[in-house]
């Protein structure tokens, strides 16, 4: 698209007078500007601006009075001495690794179950659809169900179940808050991996399974020697994707435990939210968010280089 325009502008520019230059400039950049403009504006507003804003705000002491005052590294110094931050960091690591593991493991298991073990396509589809339901229902409703499940009174689902085995009612959300948020997040997150892994497993030619069985492979070997290598790239992609979204999302935790009791389930993303929108320390909240962005970038970089994700992007893996 650019080439003919360049030719036109070169011709026009031979005149070398001012109006001609403007016409030439318009002819060269007019169409690209019209075509790319909306896209560039959107990117700037919604993708670049937030990052820039966070970076700037992280170095200010902006609070509820909405005054911008650059205060250098003060926010970061404050973070270094924040008594809660080490616990929050640890929580984040626990929360992300545990949820991610549950997520990927469940997603892969469900995909294997519904595509490989259940030969009947319709049954597999029904199971997958059921697992997708929480995804398409509002988070508030989904969490409400979990709250009901964990309800400390004897009417909660869990406690009703415990009663059957003659166990006293428990306040699970207070005793095991981390387990609760990992479960709630891991179960819903599994559907994403499940869909992608299912598609990948289905694209393995049926002959390959037959060949493996003739070659003497048991189910275990078929899963680990045929299926897992075939879904290697989707597996990496989903892991990275889920890792990033787990690092930055907090809505289920907010709805389920609000980060509590105390700071037991407070993670970095939620802490940033609390600081910014509860204590109105926008500057400090942004600094926490900035740290989160840096961590996410480092994680992405590690995946990119160590696991060779760049290779996946470069070439199609359909063989």
């Amino acid at each position: 698209m650019g080439k003919p325009n360049v030719v036109v502008s070169a011709k026009k520019n031979t005149g070398n007078s001012n109006p001609n230059r403007i016409v030439g400039f318009l002819q060269k950049w007019g169409l690209p500007a019209v075509l790319l403009g909306p896209f560039l504006i959107l990117i700037t507003i919604f993708f670049i601006a937030p990052v820039v804003l966070i970076v700037i705000l992280a170095f200010t002491n902006m609070d509820s009075s909405m005054v911008w005052d650059l205060n250098g590294l003060l926010n970061f110094k404050k973070m270094a001495s924040d008594p809660n931050l080490s616990e929050i960091m640890l929580n984040t690591v626990f929360y992300v690794t545990l949820t991610l593991s549950l997520n990927i493991f469940l997603g892969l298991s469900l995909a294997l179950l519904t595509t490989y073990f259940i030969k009947q396509e319709s049954v597999g589809l029904i199971i997958r659809t059921i697992w997708m339901l929480p995804r398409i229902s509002p988070p508030v409703v989904y969490i409400l169900l979990w709250l009901w499940f964990f309800d400390p009174s004897e009417y909660g689902v869990l406690n009703s179940l415990r009663m059957i085995f003659d166990m006293p009612p428990a306040n699970f959300l207070a005793d095991q808050p981390m387990t609760a948020i990992v479960l709630a997040n891991g179960l819903i997150g599994a559907s994403y991996g499940m869909i992608i892994f299912s598609a990948a497993i289905k694209s393995i030619p049926g002959d390959l399974f037959m060949a493996a069985r003739v070659d003497g492979a048991a189910e275990r070997s078929i899963i680990f020697d045929i299926i897992i290598p075939a879904v290697k790239w989707p597996l990496m992609f989903v892991t990275l994707w889920q890792l990033l979204s787990l690092l930055t999302s907090y809505e289920y935790i907010l709805l389920l435990t609000k980060g509590g009791p105390l700071f037991e389930t407070e993670v970095l993303a939620l802490y940033s939210y609390h600081k910014a929108f509860q204590s109105f320390e926008y500057g400090y909240g942004s600094a926490v968010a900035l740290v989160l962005v840096v961590i996410a970038l480092i994680c992405t970089f590690i995946f990119w280089r160590i696991f060779g994700m760049d290779k996946m992007i470069k070439s199609s893996r359909i063989e």
Binding site: L208, V214, D215, A217, P229, A230
Partner: peptide
């Protein structure tokens, strides 16, 4: 079961394991 029959089979599509080398393919059985 197929694995207990001690047979070798060549498929029309060859059905080679794409992520394994030639040697690994041959070693698989």
């Amino acid at each position: 079961e197929p694995k207990d029959r001690n047979i070798g089979m060549v498929f029309q599509s060859y059905a080679l394991y794409p992520h394994m080398t030639v040697l690994e393919n041959i070693m698989f059985p």
